[in-house]
Design a protein around this nucleic acid. Structure first.
Lengths: 104, 104
DNA sequence: AATATATTTCCATATTTCTAGAAATACCGT
DNA sequence: ACGGTATTTCTAGAAATATGGAAATATATT
């Protein structure tokens, strides 16, 4: 997956918050089955409304998706987005040679 | 170079701004000799005070350092910081197995 | 229907960030 | 010392973000 600079800046901005980065890290570690909002809330000890707000951000940029299971919402991270961000940084910001794929 | 989550969040936040990401990308492409503030300003067409503000942020987290040459200030990106960020993302956020280096 | 649990939405407030003009500072050439 | 170019600091307004309580919504159980 290839992302442009606007998308990259957006992803970076969303991850550039302590709480949200912690959420993503937790979700990554939780593996494919993810965690419920409540699980996250208990671990992070953050009010529900605040957590929901942050999850909204993460959902908004596609880093996290949710699936209802009964009364709970399972949250899963989309690894592809993180991979895409790493790829962007590596390709665009880690070399002083113009990108070899020559997109522009 | 290994960074912790607070540092990573800080770096991500600073890079999560369109203008600043553009600056870093430009500096990376400019190579080791970097660019002057004026060069950046001409390319980005942003007021000096605004640019200076953003450069301050980048300097603050160590992503950019500056060296005076006459009346101009040469700006250079610290590749190690970007590498460190990529490493952090790869190690902490790209796998659902606990880090194999077992730091905690 | 009533209750309980899980989560979000609404709302207000506090704080930070972005932006940029104006003034100040730094350096250089004459 | 003066004038010019480069850049920062000061200042402030506007916009965005963060936070969390209270009410609303969704689902399940009895």
């Amino acid at each position: 997956m290839k992302i442009d600079m606007d998308t990259a800046a957006e992803l970076l901005g969303v991850l550039g918050n302590h709480t949200r980065l912690a959420i993503v890290r937790m979700l990554v570690r939780a593996g494919p089955q993810g965690m419920t909002v409540g699980d996250i809330q208990r671990e992070l000890e953050v009010p529900g409304s605040t957590l929901s707000h942050h999850l909204g951000h993460l959902r908004g940029v596609g880093l996290v998706w949710q699936e209802r299971e009964g009364t709970s919402l399972h949250c899963c991270v989309d690894y592809r987005m993180i991979d895409a961000l790493v790829e962007f940084l590596t390709a665009e910001c880690c070399t002083f040679e113009p990108t070899m794929t020559g997109t522009e």
